[in-house]
Nucleic acid binder design. Structure first.
Lengths: 207, 207, 207, 207
DNA sequence: TATGAATGAGTGTTCATTCAT
DNA sequence: GATGAATGAACACTCATTCAT
């Protein structure tokens, strides 16, 4: 009802603006080759303002990695809650949601890869991502195990299967770059599923 | 018995030393965060010497990417020549060789990923890698097609299958970092194979 | 009483300080042998500050050449407006003003000579100076022509006479270096005048 | 008669080749912006060979300035011996020879100017040139004095007249650059003469 | 003697960070 | 809080000089 936003709200928006610009530029140009000045320009704020919201460049990078991670977490950690049906259907649904999620924020996947590629450079962030992965593996473990019991999935160790799936997602981001189309990602969903168990042709179901 | 090395030979060795150091450091720290001085120190030469062998830092990076690529090419481009048996056996053998190849030069895979992640930054290198991939896809196409005809492989478009395989390799490099063991890579070979066709358990064969 | 200087004014002054230091050092040591750090030190600022005001060393050199040129232009381009009397008196007056002008900013003359000596190195600056000279020649043309008509000046082509005059000024800067005194420059004014027409002894008038 | 040159002769020629290249490049690009490697290339010798003949870059520059100076000296120091007739004729002849001399080696004049412009940078060379000028002034003094006695020349101090003449030559090199033609230099000879005494039109005589 | 590889001092430029306004 | 000027550490690259061959 009030015409002017509250001061708090204004600040929150400016912070979000900067963070969004940071994710974009860090992912495009890498941490080292992204000057703070470029982030400020992209965000439409002055150079000094960036430092008002983020103490240092490293802090800005941390926030760029961790804050979007929180938004993605539900899709990876709330397996039983979000997906339903028998294990095969659950995994199908999960892949669908997760790949869509990443295909909508490909920038962000690049950021993650920068951290994964240099664990010594970003130890704290790396640990966060590692934890993220391990929780995912823990959560999906029973689903895979159940699927194996039902003869739907390969009998290999569930963590291995889970990791191969994550690897494929990461690798896809590197492999398909310029002419990105949803079609490719959709086709890839089947391939992802095949890491879990033999699937002759599930294309229509993955759309 | 041995005469002293020829000047040419000495130069070749020093160049190789520098290149090796560059691949190592570029892959560990990224292009932007690797000072030439660090490469020189790693190679045991003065930093001025690096410029004797490589005009600029960019040229050194190019060489770091392209020269090892030549060594790897045979494993990817001489499909029919190198691998034998029916399509399933050929692909098994190929995966075995290629994954071993990369697991022995994990540094190098990181370099490739830096290029793939920034096509605009490294347009010439990106094109080389893109060509490399496309030739691979062309070469493996008939093998996959034949396997499909024999009912061994999934019926999806062969290029799609090939790309998913490359994605998995790339992604594996990001996913398995610190505690690298041959075991993980070996287990992953089965997963890679499953992108081509249903394979209940081929572990013993992939060793 | 005085309010503190406005930010704009402060910036203008700092810029002028740097430019002044640059003119001094560039003229003394030449462009290539003047480190930016030396200019900064002379101006009493950190070397980073120089880059705040001048994008590159080349830009600083350009400004060092072009900005003082603007101050000198009136003495060379507003011939009819500034000088009066018959052609002989006008030229006398002009030489007096121009030589005084240069004798007060001998540093600057050295800068100009660096540009004149290397047209390919400083093409844009050279063109500016060339234009400057050509406009001067155009402006003084009618004065010389009139003086020739009155039998005061030699009958050679006015541009030739004008150029010989400019050459003398330039050469004087090279010839008289250490023990500069106004006396020499004053004596030279007569010699300059004699390039225009025969002047038995005009010393007293040139003072 | 002997087919192969003596070793001494070969060395002398190589040295001359290097020196010639040095004069050319130093005059075109300045001392600081002329790498030794460029001189070597221009001379068609290897990089290291330059150091065989000239200890350091400074020594090479010194030789580039001093050795051609010796060749030019006769034209400036053997006034009475070389030129004949009454003072006016002598000076005419002298100007003719000297300007021709410089118009044939304009490169060299640039080198001289580099030294003149930076006495503190090249103290020894500067002294040589200063001595050269002073000897010239001494030698021409009686000629001018005699011309003054005969009513041919202006009555100003002979050293002043001599210096104005040298200034004009130096300045001409700076003023006429790109479209150099002998015509301009010839026309300038009259102007040079007019610094000594009133000359209505001596063009035909200066050719 | 001729060569050019090895070296490292020197310098232009970038950019994170600080801080006065 | 917002701004952007000031600072100097860091780094790519050049090039004179040395020296082994």
């Amino acid at each position: 009802m009030s015409a002017s936003l509250s001061l708090e709200e204004k600040k929150r928006r400016k912070r979000a603006l900067i963070l969004e610009a940071a994710v974009k530029l860090f992912s495009e140009n890498g941490f080292a080759e992204t000057p703070i000045a470029a982030v400020a320009k992209e965000a439409g704020v002055s150079f000094g303002t960036v430092f008002t919201y983020f103490e240092t460049k490293d802090v800005l990078f941390q926030a760029s990695v961790l804050e979007p991670l929180e938004e993605i977490k539900p899709y990876f950690h709330e397996i039983e809650e979000r997906y339903s049906g028998n294990p095969m259907e659950m995994v199908k649904e999960m892949i669908h949601c997760q790949v869509d999620q990443f295909s909508k924020s490909m920038d962000y996947l690049r950021l993650i890869q920068q951290v994964l590629a240099r664990p010594d450079r970003y130890p704290a962030l790396f640990k966060e991502l590692d934890d993220f992965v391990n929780v995912f593996i823990d959560k999906i473990y029973p689903v895979i195990a159940e699927g194996q019991g039902m003869g739907l999935f390969y009998k290999d160790a569930p963590p291995l299967i889970a990791q191969s799936y994550l690897s494929l997602i990461n690798g896809m981001r590197l492999t398909f770059i310029d002419d990105y189309t949803n079609l490719v990602w959709n086709d890839m969903k089947i391939q992802a599923l095949r890491l879990f168990g033999p699937v002759a042709d599930a294309r229509e179901e993955m759309q």
